[in-house]
């Protein structure tokens, strides 16, 4: 999978959730969406990319990617709404 496309897709998701008034809601929304709709190999690529400086991820999706990388992560498809 192309890292550039993964970054672009994550940033696009971030632009939607960026309208959430609360930063925490935005990050949770992004992480939940990616967890729910992306294949595992894409999530892993995102997490890998997020470890690099200047990976191109914007602030909110970067935070979401780090949350996905956490040991507890985000359960796959925990929520239906909010993406």
């Amino acid at each position: 999978m192309s890292g550039d496309n993964i970054i672009k897709m994550a940033n696009d998701i971030g632009h939607f959730y960026g309208a959430e008034p609360l930063r925490e809601d935005a990050i949770a929304g992004i992480a939940n969406h990616i967890s729910r709709y992306w294949a595992k190999r894409m999530r892993e690529k995102l997490v890998e990319q997020a470890q690099h400086q200047d990976c191109g991820l914007e602030e909110l999706p970067l935070a979401a990617a780090r949350r996905l990388a956490a040991p507890t992560g985000v359960p796959a498809a925990a929520k239906i709404d909010g993406g």
Binding site: M1, S2, N5, R36, Y37, W38, A39, K40, R41, M42, A76, A77
Partner: peptide
């Protein structure tokens, strides 16, 4: 599998990556 699969454009990307 409990994991979401690839969408069509993801399939193209993965194909180009020989995956």
């Amino acid at each position: 599998s409990k994991e979401p699969g690839l969408r069509i454009p993801n399939m193209f990307e993965a194909a180009l990556a020989q995956e």
